[in-house]
Structure formats: C-alpha cells, structure tokens
Design a protein around this nucleic acid. Sequence first.
DNA 1: TATGAATGAGCATTCATTCAT
DNA 2: CATGAATGAATGCTCATTCAT
Lengths: 213, 213, 213, 213
Amino acid sequence: MGIQERKERERGRRRQQIMIAAKRVFYNKGFARVTMEDIAREAELSPGTLYLYFKNKDELCASLSLRILQYLNMRLRHVSSEKELDGKQKLEALKNTIINVYEFDPLILVNLFRLQSSETLKNLSPELLADIKELFSSSLSAMSDIFNEGIKTGVVIDKKPEALADQMWALFSGIVLWGESKKIMYNNKDYLKQALETAFEVFLLGIKRENRV
Amino acid sequence: MGIQERKERERGRRRQQIMIAAKRVFYNKGFARVTMEDIAREAELSPGTLYLYFKNKDELCASLSLRILQYLNMRLRHVSSEKELDGKQKLEALKNTIINVYEFDPLILVNLFRLQSSETLKNLSPELLADIKELFSSSLSAMSDIFNEGIKTGVVIDKKPEALADQMWALFSGIVLWGESKKIMYNNKDYLKQALETAFEVFLLGIKRENRV
Amino acid sequence: MGIQERKERERGRRRQQIMIAAKRVFYNKGFARVTMEDIAREAELSPGTLYLYFKNKDELCASLSLRILQYLNMRLRHVSSEKELDGKQKLEALKNTIINVYEFDPLILVNLFRLQSSETLKNLSPELLADIKELFSSSLSAMSDIFNEGIKTGVVIDKKPEALADQMWALFSGIVLWGESKKIMYNNKDYLKQALETAFEVFLLGIKRENRV
Amino acid sequence: MGIQERKERERGRRRQQIMIAAKRVFYNKGFARVTMEDIAREAELSPGTLYLYFKNKDELCASLSLRILQYLNMRLRHVSSEKELDGKQKLEALKNTIINVYEFDPLILVNLFRLQSSETLKNLSPELLADIKELFSSSLSAMSDIFNEGIKTGVVIDKKPEALADQMWALFSGIVLWGESKKIMYNNKDYLKQALETAFEVFLLGIKRENRV
DNA sequence: TATGAATGAGCATTCATTCAT
DNA sequence: CATGAATGAATGCTCATTCAT
C-alpha cells in the first residue's frame, strides 16, 4: 500500500468520522437547526477542519445522502443481477431490499427525500450533484430492470418499467415522509415499517398479472 | 351582522390578501429564500403589519397549507357523501379529486408535503396545529370512508380502510415531491400530472377486487 | 417640504452620522482593522442598521471618499469659473485649494488615495463607482481647464493640460501617502502641509513660462 | 567557506525561491486575495515551511519590497558616485534610473508604495523595519547628493536637497499609484511609463536654474 | 529541516421580530 | 390599526499560524 493510498484512506476515515458526528447531531437537534459548529463540537474538531473535508455545509449534508444512495444502489444492483431468482422472486427481493435500506438508516433517508425536493440541490458542486444523479439513475434503472424482467416473463402487467420504478420510488419516499409527520403529529413512532410492508404489498398486487382476471 | 362580526370578516380578508401575496413571492423566489420583507412588499404592507395577522413566519407559511387542506377536505367530503355514486365510481371520483387538488395549486401542495416532515410543525401555535391535524384527519377519514364503502360492497379487497387511505396519501405526496426533484434534476417539467394518473391507476388496480382471480 | 422629502433628508442625516462615526473609528484603529461592529458601536447603532444605509463595508468606506471628492470638486469648479482671476492667479488659487482640501480632512484623503490603487474599486456597486469616476473626471477636468487657460494666456508652457492635471493629482496623492509613511516611520508628524506647499511651488515653477529663459 | 556560511547561503536561496513564488502569485491573484497557502503551493513547499523563512505574512510581503529597494539603492548610489557625469547629466541619469526601476518590477513597486502608507509597517520585526528604513534613507540620501551637487554647481535652484528628494520620491509613488487606478478605472494600460517621463521632465524643468530668467 | 493537518478567533452579513410613533 | 426603522443574535466561512511527527 503506497503512502498516497494510505493518506487517501485516512482522509476517507476522517470524512466518515465527520459524517457520523453530523448524523448524531441531526438526531438530537433536527436538521434545520444544526450549525457547522454543532457538528464540529460533536466530531471533536474545530469548525475550520470541517471545511478541509467538505466544501460547505450543503455538501456535507448531501454527502450523508450519498452514502445511503450508494448502499441502496449496491443492494438493488445485486438483486437485479441475481441469476438464481425468477421474476417473481425478484419482485419480492426488491420489496425486502427497500425495506432493509429503510431500516439501515431511517433518518438519513428522510434527509435524502427532503433533499430531493429542495433548493439545496442547486447549491451543490457539479461533481457531487452528478454523483447523486448517477446513483439515482442507476438505482432506478436497476429497479426498471427487475420490473422489465417481470414484464417479459409475464409476471408483471404491461406498463413501462421506468414508470413503475418511478412509482415505487415515489411510494417509498411518500410513505417515509408521511410517516415522519405522523411521528411528529401523532407521536406514532413505530408505524413506518409496517406501513412500508403494506404499501409495497398493495403495489405489487396492483402490478402482478397473476392477481388479475 | 354585528360590528364584531364585520371586523372579524375584515380581518379574514386581510389574512387572505397576505397569504395570496406570500404565494406569489414563493412562486418567484422559491420557498427557502423568501423573507418576511419580501412578502410585506408584495402585499403592499409593512413587515410589522404581517405580525398583526400571523404570529410568526412559520404560521404564515403553514396557513397557506391550511387553505389547500380545506379545499381538499371539502372536495373529499363531497365525494364521500355523494349518494348518486356507487363504490366503484367513488374510487374513480377520489382519484380525480386528488389530481384536481394537485392542479389547483401545485406549489402550495409541495409546501404542505414538506411541512409534513418538518420541524416547523413543532413551532406552530397549538391552535393552528390542531386545525391542520383536524383537516388531515378529516380528509383521511373521508378517504377511509370511501374505501370502506368499497370494501363493504365487495369492490375493494379486504384491508384496513385507514391503511389504504394512508397509502394513497403517501403515494400522493411521494409522487409530488419526487416530481419536484425530477424538475430540478432533470428539467423534466410536465411529468407530474401523468405520473399521478398512472400511479393512482396502479394503486386502484391493486386494491380492486374485480382485478383479482 | 413634502413628507417624502423630509424622509430623504432624515436618511441623509443618518448616513452622515454613520460616516462620521466610521471616520472616528478609522482614526483610532487604522483602516485595515476596523470592523462593522466597531463602527456600529461608535455610531451607537446595531450592526444591522448600518446595512440599511450602506450596501456593504466597501461601500461605506468608499462613501467617505465620495464626500471629500465632492468637496474637492466643488472647490475646483469654483476656482475654474472665477471670472475675477487671471490665469496666473488661478494657478495660485488651485494650489491653495488643494492644500485646503488636504487640511479639510487628511485622513479621509489617505483613504481616497489608497482606494485609487485598490481592488476594492472592483467590488463597489456600479452606481457608486460611476459617481466616483464622475467626480474624479470632473475634478481633473476643472484642473485641466485652469491649466488650459494658463496655456492660452501664455502663462503656462505648452503641454497637454490633461497631462498636467494628472501630474498635479499624482503629486498630490504621492506627497500625502509618502507623508503618511514618514509619520509612521519617522514619527515626523507635521511634515505634510509644508511638503505640499513646496512641491506645488516647484511644480508651478516647472510649468510657468515666466520662469523660463 | 565554512559550513555555517554555506547554510546561510542555502537559507538565502530558499528565501529567494519563496519570494519569487509569492510574486508570481501576486501577479495572478492580486495582492489582497493571496493566502499563505497559495504562496506555499506555488513554491512547492508546505505552509509551515514558509514560517521557517519568514516570521509572518507581513514580513514576507515586505521582503518583496526590500528587494526592489535594494536594487533601487544600488542604482542610485551608482549614479551618485559616478565621476564621469556632471551635475546636469546626473539629473538625467537619476530620471532614467527611476524609470528603469519602475520597469524592472512595476507590481512590486506598487506593493512598496502601498506599504509606505500602511499599518503593516507597524507589524514588521524591528530588524526588517530597520532595513527598510535604512534603504529608504540611503536611497533618498543618494538622491539628495545628486541634487546637492546640482545646487553647488549652479545647475539646480537653491532649495533644500532633501526636500527635493522627497518630492521626487513622492512624485514617483504618486504617479505609479495614480496610474494603477487609471488601469482599474479606465482600462488605460500603457499610460504609466510615458506619464513618468513627462512628470519627471516637468519636475526637472522646475528645479533647473537654466530654465529660469 | 520540512510537513500539512488542525486550529479557532474573527467578521461580514442576514432577517425574523419588536416597538415607538 | 399600521408603520418601518431598528434591532442583535445567529452563522457560515476564511486563513494566518502552530505543532506533532
């Protein structure tokens, strides 16, 4: 391992450390109110140091989303390319994957979905924005592939696979955000996982050919 | 009409005037960047005056959501209580209503959905929060009623009607927010209405008994 | 006097008040180290208030220069248009005017000369920059006129009047800045007025025809 | 050559290398915006290393001025002590020397003149400040000598030679700084050398006895 | 000697909110 | 009721300088 490589790895670790601290602060104070100083304090670093690893606050926040997108993408690609599963099993695996990603880090997922609809997107560096777009596209395309296989093998009704992928994604983000508000408005904490299960079941019911006359 | 009542009505008009101005500003500058002074200027009032009609900025913004919630609620109640329609027709009417609400004011709807998952909720006055909750509950309960009628008449599969209402709502907000991000990330402007149509169709496919074996 | 006009005047007074405070602070702390908060404190205002009257720090500082430029310009125009004086007397009046402007506010003059050679110029609002340019041009053109009259009446040697004006201006700023450094480096406080006198005398000697063979 | 001496020479080389890098950066980014890291990067050193050779940023910048002052001083001493030239020729040589110094490094000269009137002077180490003072004094004294010789030989009018030297220096810095601002304000790039020529000519006209009645 | 990661004080600017008129 | 000038706390970001290695 060259010295260059070791440094790069060290740098990556630092970034992780900061992102983890940021996440902890987000949990405690809520996204909107977190300041760079809060994050620095939590990471036991000085504010200036954060800027050695992230260009600005928006990029730090967006980087959190990037991580979970990477995880999601990896999992989806894996399902999509799984040779052992038939079309129907893949649909099931898709559902489970998404729920699993939700469980992996619910808070950051909320951050991601909020990012989607935000002016923040406009302030990101072109590189980071490109990365995010790329992962989004790639994930949706993996989902499309799964639906497409379903369509070809006659498991899924004949709709555009991309539209189905978009819908599933929208359902995912909609449920998660809606669940958030239920938590806040109704103190209804553990509603989400179950809601996701049911929603995806209904969604699959709707698109599976076998359930049709 | 007493003098008291006339004053109250006058007051309501002023509030409307401010809210309309706020909406115009939001359209032009984007939610995040709007200041109270912007709104005051647009309303041809002074900043101080806004505070005579709204406790603070959050409440002003949330009040915008309140209006569209009122509209939504009215429409849903109307569908739900329509004697002329059978269960199946009501499902169709429900779909159309929601799409119609979307078209009525897309931007404010985004605001509403963003509000759902936001810490802003915590800062609202108990009264306003109660109003919002009430309208949410009422709207969802109207939707539940429609689904319930469908279930009873054998049109809809046997799931909890409240869960179905939640899902439909989540689907609604998910699509709208996801559509927003598509606008920003892909400059894909007129995607939304069609996406809503398709998503609701699939959703109804999934829950209608007639489509099942 | 209309209400509008009174307000405008009030606003002007406030600006003056702030500028005077700024000047006081500059005297005490030196230009480079002064913060907006210092100025606000001196003006017995809050930092935010400064921004109601000046777009930003650079503009506040440049506005100080504007004032002395206005004074200079007024005086020069006056000399230039004075009917009672012949060409030779106008040269004398020009010299005295400039020295008088120096005495009017030496520190701000240093600020002005420093502004000349600074990247600050690039950050000013187009309007303010235009005002400054205009006053510079106008002042130099008044000086040119005086030299031109001297040339036409045979008092001054035959050089381009604009070049003479530039030179006199350069001499002025050069002496003032050089005098500043003498103050700092040699604690030589009262050197400047005398130096200006002598320098302008030599300059006039150099350009007056009567001193030539 | 002892080991001590070799080290000292090595150290000097490093300082030169850094100063040259600094100058390059100044040319590209403008004085105000240059950071120590910029300079370090350009010099292919680390920021920390700069502090092994210069006490702080101000000293680094002032050292640039020191170099051109050394050059100026050397040239002036040379003219002053030139046996072959008579008083009149020396005045001409003085003029050419100064213009030549300007051409040698205009940007650094601007830096020097700006330094003159700056609070930076107060932050320099006593040693560096002493060096700068010494070179200034020495240069002005060389100029004084030249004027003095002119006075004694009847070429120059009977004024204090030190005052004449001060004036010439002030004229020099005045023209250069004023020329800078013309560049910025009027995009008038190649004005300076010619302006210096003319200004010095007029100055010499003013102090030469031969031009008088 | 050289490094360069880390520091942290410092600062311009914004904007929701207030209150004297 | 209405005003709008004034507030001042809050915050993202910079960069000269240090110090452990």
